[in-house]
């Protein structure tokens, strides 16, 4: 934890060479593409554009897949045989991760490790190396600065890139994992000037703080019942798009999937708390029977319950859920409105 940050310089060409080597070694290299983090097959695909807005989805699915088998079963007459799933913890390097994505795995670690440790999540995240990239632009949906982060946050990155000019980056070694990763490439690194890259970070325009998360936390505690929820519930479609694009939403379902008469697998699939059937009991009773209660759950879970349980807000301020919402529900606006 108490790793001392090291400041280096790397040229863009050398960075691309490094990427080429990662691919050649057979590791998975992910980088922001047009709509999502894409697997880079050729370094010419790499853009490293600090002014790009967040992709439609994050790289969450690489650590917590949309659908994954957690066990296989075989049935014969009255007997059942269970077969373990072998999670292949392949090394994944994320290049140019947005600061609103880099901390997502750290936030999720709490959930997947309290009490019971989720081996699938843990094995995958252990093999992740995250190379963050400072972010130099934002739109009306961004609000990282309201949830304790910022476009220049190194939180969650193992290595962090700051563009110094057209063909040079400051490279900060943030964690032990990052240091281990970069060591073989030390020939590409020169000593950097921390003051100079700090000046770049300071010059970046950041979204204005939209709300005080502590006040929101308090307001939510006092306003479980409030007509505001009903207003939102009337607009929301319960489509759960917002959950599926979110870097930190983590609800899942467990279902069995037969693929022959005698064989099948148990799947852990993404689910969303905005669906009506999410909490529906077999008896027909549903504790969150109307959309206003489900949206209230979404906001409370992110800005109150998760904070109470794990000390972190379950939101990185990336604005993805708002950008993609078919009926223009803007979470920043809603949370800013969580006051009297």
């Amino acid at each position: 934890m108490s790793f001392k940050m090291e400041e280096k310089i790397i040229s863009k060409d050398d960075l691309l060479k490094l990427c080429g080597d990662v691919i050649a070694k057979g590791h998975t290299l992910l980088a922001p593409g047009i709509a999502e983090y894409e697997q880079v097959k050729d370094v010419s695909q790499i853009r490293l554009d600090s002014s790009a807005l967040p992709t439609k989805t994050s790289y969450k699915s690489y650590v917590f897949p949309k659908a994954e088998p957690i066990l296989y079963y075989k049935r014969s007459k009255s007997d059942v045989q269970l077969i373990d799933v072998d999670v292949n913890g392949k090394k994944i390097v994320v290049l140019g991760a947005k600061p609103c994505d880099t901390n997502s795995i750290n936030i999720l670690k709490h959930l997947f490790n309290w009490d019971y440790e989720d081996e699938f999540f843990n094995l995958r995240q252990k093999h992740f190396v995250i190379i963050g990239l400072m972010c130099s632009s934002f739109d009306e949906y961004c609000f990282c600065t309201s949830v304790g982060s910022s476009p220049v946050s190194e939180e969650g990155s193992d290595l962090f890139l700051i563009p110094i000019n057209e063909d040079k980056f400051a490279l900060r070694i943030i964690t032990e994992k990052g240091k281990e990763f970069i060591e073989p490439y030390s020939e590409f690194l020169k000593d950097g000037d921390e003051a100079k890259s700090n000046a770049v970070l300071e010059s970046i325009k950041k979204p204005e703080v939209a709300f005080d998360s502590k006040q929101v936390h308090e307001w939510l505690g006092d306003n479980f019942e409030n007509p505001k929820w009903e207003g939102i519930g009337n607009v929301c479609l319960s489509c759960a798009q917002c959950a599926f694009v979110c870097p930190v939403c983590h609800c899942f379902d467990l279902v069995d999937e037969d693929y022959s008469y005698s064989e099948g697998r148990r799947m852990k699939n993404w689910d969303g708390c905005q669906f009506g059937h999410f909490t529906l009991h077999a008896s027909g009773h549903n504790p969150r029977d109307i959309q206003s209660k489900r949206y209230r759950q979404r906001v409370n879970h992110k800005f109150r319950y998760y904070v109470d349980k794990f000390g972190e807000i379950l939101c990185t301020g990336c604005g993805r859920c708002s950008r993609g919402c078919p009926v223009s529900i803007d979470i920043k606006e809603i949370v800013s409105n969580c006051k009297d």
Binding site: Y116, D271, C273, H281
Partner: peptide, 12 residues
């Protein structure tokens, strides 16, 4: 309450 994981993770 409707449950799936029983482990405090699935969120329902």
């Amino acid at each position: 309450n409707r449950m799936k994981c029983g482990l405090g993770k699935c969120g329902r």
